[in-house]
């Protein structure tokens, strides 16, 4: 799947508030060890992908930080959407509308189930470059069976990754070959 989006990513009127958000958001980086999301849970979610075999300790750490930014970004845009209707409460329809209208959140639209339980009336008109997406994705939790990840990502597997019988051997192998990593079994 290719997601190269060069379109403008946000309406001009929102620029100032979002820039302010990103300026403040950066300050959160100062504490390397401060995590809002439990690392163990993030690691478990990462392992839902069958292609993921080993995870460096730094990876869930970084994903935790990226996910914090994602939640704050999505929340800020949803709040702006609610404000356009002069409301003080963020509704599900605000979040759905933001996902539909924001280009950088394309992957959420492509991967969620398309069927809707209820029609969602978006207060704002859709942005021109997403005019083909009339339906708002319905993220109703009840539709998914237990243990199912929402909208399984489309993975372009490049062949079968052969498992190594001994984990310590794999590490030794990586040591021996350095930056190139292991190339199959020895």
């Amino acid at each position: 799947m290719e997601n190269n989006n060069n379109n403008h990513q946000q309406p001009p009127k929102d620029n100032e508030q979002l820039k302010s958000f990103w300026s403040k958001g950066m300050e959160g980086d100062l504490n390397v060890k401060n995590h809002e999301f439990p690392i163990s849970r993030i690691k478990r979610i990462m392992k839902f992908d069958p292609d993921v075999s080993m995870i460096a300790a730094e990876a869930p750490n970084l994903l935790s930080k990226a996910c914090e930014m994602f939640v704050m970004d999505l929340t800020m845009r949803s709040w702006l959407h609610a404000q356009e209707s002069n409301r003080l409460t963020i509704r599900k329809s605000d979040v759905d509308a933001v996902v539909s209208q924001t280009v950088i959140f394309d992957f959420l639209r492509d991967d969620v189930p398309k069927d809707e339980g209820e029609p969602v009336v978006a207060a704002a008109d859709p942005v021109d470059d997403v005019a083909d997406h009339v339906a708002v994705p319905d993220l109703n939790n009840e539709e998914l069976p237990p243990g199912t990840v929402i909208g399984t990502p489309v993975c372009y597997g490049l062949g079968i990754h052969a498992p190594h019988p001994q984990m310590p051997g794999a590490w030794t192998e990586e040591d021996a070959t350095g930056a190139n990593g292991g190339n199959g079994g020895n």
Partner: peptide
């Protein structure tokens, strides 16, 4: 809205992974 953001965030992690 919280539940929707919760699901989107989980999907975000899966997709980046």
């Amino acid at each position: 809205a919280k539940q929707t953001v919760q699901e989107c965030a989980t999907e975000f992690i899966s997709f980046v992974t």
